[in-house]
Design a protein around this nucleic acid. Structure first.
Length: 452
RNA sequence: GUGGGUAUAGUUCAGUUGGAUAGAACGCCAGAUUGUGGCUCUGGAGGUCGUCGGUUCGAGCCCGAUUACCCACCCCA
C-alpha cells in the first residue's frame, strides 16, 4: 500500500494552502491595527514548560503531547538511562506557553514597560483520536497581551477576534460568543469547593466521570455532555455569585466595553476552560451549524499567574487562539467558497514540436518580465493545449507555429474576444506586459500603442 | 483509551435473495473538414471490488481476522 500522511494530519492542497496564507495575512492585518506584532517561537519546547504552564493534570498535558526525542537520547532511554529534563521536549500543543516563555526570556515586558502585544500563527500538535474538527496537527492563530491587567485589554481582544471572523466570511449571526469569569486565587478556591460538595451531594445521580471530576477539577462537570448531569448542574452554584470585589469589577467592565462596541455575547456561567492557567475573563466562540461535535472556533482568556509559573516576574496576561481548520469547516458548512485567486496568466500553445524551443525561450522571457506564463509539458495536441489554457483561466494564448516562427512572429489571441494579432517575437514580452494585464474582455491595443 | 460506521474507476457513488464480460455521473483521452478553447454529439482508456483467510459448484455481496479512514465519547482551537 502506498505511504500515507500520519494519522490525524492533512495536506493543505493548493487551494487550502492559499487560503491559509490569506487567513494569516487577514489576521495579522487586523490584529496589527490593535498593536499586535508577530512572534515566532519554536515548534517544540521543553516538556516542563507545558507541564508547569498548562497544568500537569490537564488532558492536554497528561495524555495528548507528542514527545520529541533525538536518536541519541532514544537509544539511551531504551538502554534504561534517564534523559535530562533539559533534553525532554514536546511538540507544542498550544501557543500561549511558548509565547509567555519567550516574553520572559527576552524580557519583552521590562519593569514599568509597555505591554507586549504579540501574535502568532502556526501548527500545534495533540495526540488525540482524530475526528471532525480535531486533528493531531492543526493550525492556530493566536494573540497574547502581556503586562496589562486592565479589562480594556480583554474587551479589545474579543472585539478584534469577532472582527476577524467576519472578515474571513463567517457571518455574525452564525456565531455565538460565550463569556464568563472564572475568578482568581482569592475567590475561586471557595467556589471550587462549593461545586465539589454540590456534586458529592448529588453523587447518586451523576455519572462516574463527574464523580471523578469532583476530585480532579470539579468545574469541568459543567462541560459534561450527559443530559442528566447537565440538568443537575443547572442548579449548581454559579461562579458569578462567588466572585471577589476585584473580579466582579473587572468582569463588569469587560462587559460594558463589549456593549459599548455593540458586541453581543452570552453570559455562560458553565463556561470553563480546560487549561489550568485561565482566570477571570474566559470566552469562547462557537458556530452551531455543520460543525460536528467540535464547535468552538476560538477561545481564550486571562492568565495573570502564568508568567510566574514559567519563572518570570509577575506579569498579567490575556490571549486567545482560533483554529484554522475549524474556521474552514464553518465556512464550508455555510456554503462560502474560499476567496478566488484570480491570476491572469498567459499560455503558449505550440502547433508542432519543432517550435517548442522557441516557445520555451519566450516563456522564460515572459516570466522574467513578471508575468504568470505556462506551456504544455506533455506533448498534447493543439486542441488540448487550448483546453489546458482554459482550465488555468489564461486570458491570453500565444500560438507558435512553423509559419509564425519562420517570420520571427508570434500570434497573440485574446481568449475573451477571440481577437488575434501577429506581433514580433522580440517585442512579445513587452506587448504582453501591456496586454496581459487587461480585463478579460478588453480590446487588444494596437501594436505601436502597446509598445510605446 | 472506549464505542459505532465505512472501504467498488482519478472523484462522488450504484450494484437486487450469492450467478456468467462489475455499472452511472463527473473527470480524462481521441474524433466531429485545414493549425484554435468553453457548449453539444460520438467513441475510447481506466477497477488485483482495502488486505488475508474461510463457507460455497460459484463471493463485490455471507463469515472471521487485519489495516486504513470517518463519526461519537473524552478533551479542546
Amino acid at each position: 500500500m502506498a505511504l500515507q500522511a500520519p494519522k490525524g494530519t492533512k495536506d493543505l492542497l493548493p487551494e487550502q494552502a492559499r487560503f491559509w496564507e490569506y487567513f494569516k495575512k487577514t489576521a495579522y492585518d487586523i490584529f496589527g491595527r490593535y498593536g499586535y506584532a508577530p512572534l515566532e517561537t519554536p515548534i517544540f519546547e521543553q516538556t516542563e514548560l507545558f507541564v508547569r504552564g498548562i497544568g500537569e493534570a490537564t488532558d492536554v498535558v497528561s495524555k495528548e503531547m507528542f514527545q520529541v526525542i533525538s536518536g541519541e537520547n532514544l537509544k539511551n532511554l531504551l538502554a534504561g538511562q534517564a534523559i535530562k529534563a533539559k533534553s525532554q521536549f514536546s511538540l507544542r500543543p498550544e501557543g500561549t506557553a511558548g509565547v509567555v516563555r519567550a516574553v520572559v526570556q527576552n524580557d519583552l515586558v521590562p519593569q514599568g514597560g509597555a505591554p507586549a502585544k504579540l501574535m502568532y500563527a502556526g501548527q500545534m500538535f495533540r495526540a488525540e483520536r482524530p475526528q471532525m474538527g480535531r486533528l493531531r496537527q492543526f493550525r492556530q492563530v493566536g494573540v497574547e497581551c502581556l503586562g496589562a491587567e486592565a479589562p480594556s485589554v480583554d474587551a479589545e481582544a474579543i472585539i478584534m477576534l469577532m472582527r476577524f471572523y467576519e472578515a474571513i466570511g463567517i457571518a455574525r449571526p452564525s456565531m455565538r460568543l460565550l463569556l464568563n469569569s472564572m475568578g482568581c486565587d482569592a475567590c475561586r478556591p471557595a467556589y471550587r469547593e462549593e461545586v465539589r460538595s454540590f456534586i458529592l451531594d448529588h453523587a447518586q445521580d451523576m455519572c462516574e466521570e463527574c464523580l471523578h471530576r469532583a476530585e480532579i477539577n470539579p468545574l469541568r462537570a459543567f462541560d459534561c455532555k450527559n443530559p442528566h448531569c447537565a440538568e443537575i448542574m443547572e442548579d449548581a452554584p454559579k461562579i458569578t455569585d462567588f466572585l471577589c470585589e476585584e473580579c466582579r469589577t473587572h468582569y463588569a467592565t469587560v462587559k460594558s466595553y463589549l456593549q459599548l462596541a455593540g458586541i453581543e455575547f452570552i453570559e455562560d456561567t458553565r463556561l470553563v476552560r480546560g487549561l489550568d492557567y485561565y482566570m477571570r475573563t474566559v470566552f469562547e466562540v462557537q458556530v452551531t451549524n455543520g460543525m460536528g461535535a467540535q464547535n468552538a472556533i476560538g477561545g481564550g482568556g486571562r492568565y495573570d499567574k502564568l508568567a510566574e509559573e514559567v519563572g518570570g516576574r509577575p506579569t498579567p496576561g490575556l490571549g486567545f487562539a482560533l483554529g484554522f481548520e475549524r474556521c474552514v469547516i464553518a465556512l464550508e458548512a455555510a456554503g462560502n467558497a474560499f476567496p478566488a485567486t484570480d491570476v491572469p496568466s498567459i499560455f503558449l500553445a505550440c502547433v508542432d514540436d519543432s517550435v517548442r524551443p522557441v516557445a520555451f525561450e519566450l516563456l522564460q522571457a515572459l516570466r522574467d518580465a513578471g508575468m504568470t506564463a505556462e506551456m504544455d509539458h506533455q506533448q498534447r495536441s493543439l486542441k488540448s493545449q487550448f483546453k489546458l489554457a482554459d482550465k488555468m483561466a489564461a486570458r491570453t494564448v500565444c500560438i507558435l507555429g512553423p509559419e509564425e516562427v519562420a517570420e520571427g512572429k508570434v500570434k497573440v489571441r485574446n481568449m475573451g474576444t477571440h481577437e488575434e494579432k501577429l506581433i514580433d517575437l522580440e517585442a512579445a514580452a513587452k506587448f504582453l506586459g501591456n496586454f496581459g494585464g487587461m480585463p478579460y474582455n478588453g480590446v487588444m491595443p494596437g501594436i505601436e500603442e502597446a509598445l510605446d
